[in-house]
Structure formats: structure tokens, C-alpha cells
């Protein structure tokens, strides 16, 4: 397992855009952290940006699959179904645990300017939608490389509804989540587990399908020498 993990990290080096991936992963992580610390449950965007580095791991391994050498090697299947998960899932779970602990702490200790019950509802709502967002993005990251247009349409519909509900300040919604804190935490964890399992299953189901041209069009054009 550890050996495979080291191999997965080593393989990152060979993708064509490793530098820009690394730089932008760092930038997105900082932006995510900024949103997370300043929003304190108001905005769901922090989670999206904290997840972005994981999708760049994915991109790194999938773009390496365009190489003929990888296509003809025995590691072809592993490059799509095993190595990306070794990096992404631990990273995402780590991020999720940090976000979870932070918002749990905010829920228990309260925030300035909010009554205890409203704050409780806001944090409960945030945890629920953060789990849903993470689960959806995990499955989307895999499917988008095989069916780009369809997956983007589905993602836009699902994500927009999650973002709008997550940003909503409706008192009904907040009081509903406030009353069901335990259930929303449980559903959040279930969403994450479904996301991880769904991503692994989809990767195994779709690995024989060619990588969608549109998803890697820019890179393919720049490499076609």
C-alpha cells in the first residue's frame, strides 16, 4: 500500500502540466481556507475550493493516460482506477474531518451576532451541504473525463441547487436543520461514503471508455507536436 502510494506520487511528476497543477492547487487551497475562516458557515464556496486540489490530482493522472506508453502498459487500469484514489480520498477525508471539527466547534461554542439556536442551524446546514458537495464532486471528477458534457450539465444542476440552498438564509431552512443536527451530520457522512464508493465504482465501470476529447482538448492541442 505504502509502495503504491509512493508510486502514485512519483507518477504525478510525469504529467505534462505538473508545475501549474502544483501552483494552482496551492492557490485554491489558500482561497478555500480564506472562505472557510471568514465565512464561518455562511458560504459553501470554501468547501469547493478546498476540494479543488484533489481534482487536480485526478487531472494529473488522467492526462498522463493520453500518453501512448501508458496506454500500452500494464499500469493503464491502475492509472485510472487506483492511483488517483490513493491520493484523493485521504486528502478529501482529511479536509472533511478538519471542516467537520471546525464547524462542530463553532456549533458548540456559538458565534458572535447569532443566537445559539440560529448558529446551531447554520452549522448543521453547512455540514449537510458540505457532505453533499463532496460526494457529488467526487463522482463528477471521475465521470467528467469520460462523459464531459453530460456530467457538466448534471453537475451544474446539482451544484447550483446545493450552492443556492447552502447560501440561503431562509429561517425555515435554518430552523429545520437546527432541529435535526444529528441527522444532518449522519447524512453528511453517508454522502461522503457514497461519494467515495461511487467514484471507485464509476472509475472501474468506465475505465475502458476513451477519455473525452473536450475534457483534455487544451492539453491535447498543446501536446500534439
Amino acid at each position: 500500500m505504502l509502495k503504491d502510494f509512493i508510486t502514485a506520487i512519483k507518477l504525478l511528476k510525469y504529467n505534462p502540466k505538473v508545475k501549474s497543477h502544483a501552483v494552482f492547487s496551492g492557490i485554491f487551497f489558500v482561497i478555500g481556507l480564506f472562505y472557510e475562516l471568514t465565512g464561518k458557515g455562511d458560504s459553501i464556496l470554501g468547501v469547493i475550493y478546498l476540494l479543488c486540489p484533489a481534482t487536480t490530482f485526478w487531472q494529473s493522472h488522467y492526462t498522463s493516460c493520453m500518453c501512448g506508453l501508458v496506454q500500452s502498459s500494464q499500469a493503464k487500469k491502475k492509472m485510472q482506477t487506483y492511483y488517483p484514489f490513493l491520493l484523493c480520498i485521504p486528502y478529501l477525508l482529511l479536509v472533511y474531518v478538519i471542516v467537520f471539527v471546525y464547524h462542530f466547534y463553532l456549533a458548540k461554542n456559538g458565534m458572535e451576532g447569532f443566537t445559539y439556536s440560529v448558529n446551531y442551524g447554520i452549522q448543521s446546514k453547512y455540514l449537510f451541504f458540505a457532505g453533499a458537495m463532496l460526494g457529488t464532486l467526487l463522482i463528477y471528477s471521475v465521470v467528467s473525463y469520460k462523459e464531459f458534457v453530460i456530467s457538466v450539465i448534471v453537475l451544474v444542476v446539482v451544484e447550483l441547487s446545493i450552492i443556492f440552498l447552502g447560501l440561503s438564509e431562509s429561517q425555515k431552512l435554518i430552523s429545520f436543520f437546527g432541529r435535526h443536527f444529528t441527522q444532518s451530520v449522519a447524512f453528511s457522512i453517508i454522502f461522503v461514503v457514497i461519494g467515495c464508493a461511487g467514484a471507485v465504482i464509476m472509475a472501474n465501470l468506465l475505465y475502458k471508455k476513451d477519455i473525452d476529447e473536450i475534457a483534455v482538448k487544451g492539453i491535447a492541442r498543446s501536446l500534439n507536436k
Partner: peptide, 14 residues
């Protein structure tokens, strides 16, 4: 300037 779509989407949002 950006060719990778995940980075493209993230930067575009900002």
C-alpha cells in the same frame, strides 16, 4: 492561458 479544465473552472469562478 490555462489548458486544464479543473483549474480553468476554479480560476473562472474567482
Amino acid at each position: 492561458f490555462i489548458t486544464e479544465y479543473t483549474i480553468y473552472m476554479g480560476t473562472a469562478f474567482i
